[in-house]
Write a protein that binds this DNA or RNA. Structure first.
Length: 297
DNA sequence: AACACGTGGAT
DNA sequence: TATCCAAGTGT
């Protein structure tokens, strides 16, 4: 240990990470100084399990059409689902609409700035609440997504992780590494996230381009393989596939679709009935007395 | 805690 | 072609 310094340099050295972020961080719309909390919140919903490239155009359309939470809340939830396009997980559109409604009703139309208030919004979990608090309001909160979790696992813990939602221990560990100054801490989280997205990727990490390679415990251990993943559900013939087809049909038809027509989209009659009922139960579809189905009003 | 929940690009 | 997986949340 150096005689002059009190603590050893951490693996996730803020100096190295912030320099990396300044040089290589992507110029994304929700990172612009002009992007307000609403633009950040919308981006975080869209980015849940969805790549940046596909979010970009839809985010731009949403902000142009609904510049404030109240603008979105003033329209039927079905319009949010329709404008969601093919981003996937359309229930996110429903929850974002519900969040906008709660913001308009309970927060005077302003996106709240504290983690507890954000957590109370529909569709906002442990990750999104801290991402908005940090990136939109400059709060000193540990922001741990799948990228940050992977960097923590590899660089700090020396193991390769399977992809799972971050846990409290991950947030605690990152919190211990945050710079003291809040705005700098927020940039630090964004920098770790960016490193995971651009360099320390899941499948093909580019250690030769990593600013942390000299300290990385995983690299120094010879990049040991991670544990096996849980088996994934087959896609062909799944409920998810059929639900996707049904919602796509509803998005395309402003006048609604006959229930019988939706049921034809599946190979299995019982499965189709079950999926349609589930969509209605989830609030992604509504059925009128004639049996006509539409996106929610 | 384990699952369900969409989509499309990369390998 | 099959599998992985990308800024998670709710149950």
């Amino acid at each position: 240990m150096p005689a002059a310094a009190g603590a050893p340099t951490p693996v996730l050295d803020p100096e190295l990470l912030l320099d990396f972020f300044a040089r290589h961080g992507r110029d994304l719309p929700w990172r612009h100084p002009s992007a307000g909390p609403w633009a950040v919140l919308v981006s975080e919903f869209m980015l849940q399990q969805t790549p940046v490239r596909r979010v970009l155009p839809v985010h731009q359309e949403w902000l142009a059409r609904w510049p404030t939470p109240a603008d979105l809340a003033a329209e039927p939830a079905g319009e949010a689902v329709r404008a969601w396009g093919r981003l996937g997980y359309p229930r996110r559109a429903l929850r974002l609409h519900a969040a906008a409604t709660a913001i308009a009703r309970d927060h005077g139309g302003r996106v709240p700035s504290t983690v507890p208030e954000l957590l109370a919004l529909p569709g906002v979990g442990e990750y999104t609440a801290r991402a908005v608090a940090a990136f939109a309001f400059g709060a000193r909160e540990p922001v741990v997504d799948t990228n940050v979790r992977r960097v923590l696992d590899r660089a700090v813990r020396g193991v390769d992780s399977i992809r799972e939602p971050a846990v409290a221990a991950d947030r605690r560990d990152l919190a211990a590494l945050l710079p003291v100054e809040p705005a700098r801490a927020a940039r630090f989280s964004a920098a770790v996230m960016e490193l995971g997205a651009l360099v320390c990727t899941a499948a093909a990490p580019a250690c030769d381009r990593c600013p942390l390679v000299a300290r990385c415990r995983w690299y120094r251990a010879g990049r040991p393989a991670g544990t096996a993943r849980r088996p994934v559900q087959t896609w062909h013939g799944s409920d998810r596939q059929l639900r996707g087809r049904m919602v796509a049909a509803l998005r395309a038809e402003r006048a609604g679709v006959a229930a019988a027509e939706l049921l034809l989209l599946g190979d299995d009659r019982d499965q189709a009935r079950r999926c349609l009922a589930a969509l209605i139960a989830d609030g992604l579809a509504e059925q009128d007395p004639d049996g006509r189905v539409d996106l929610p009003r």
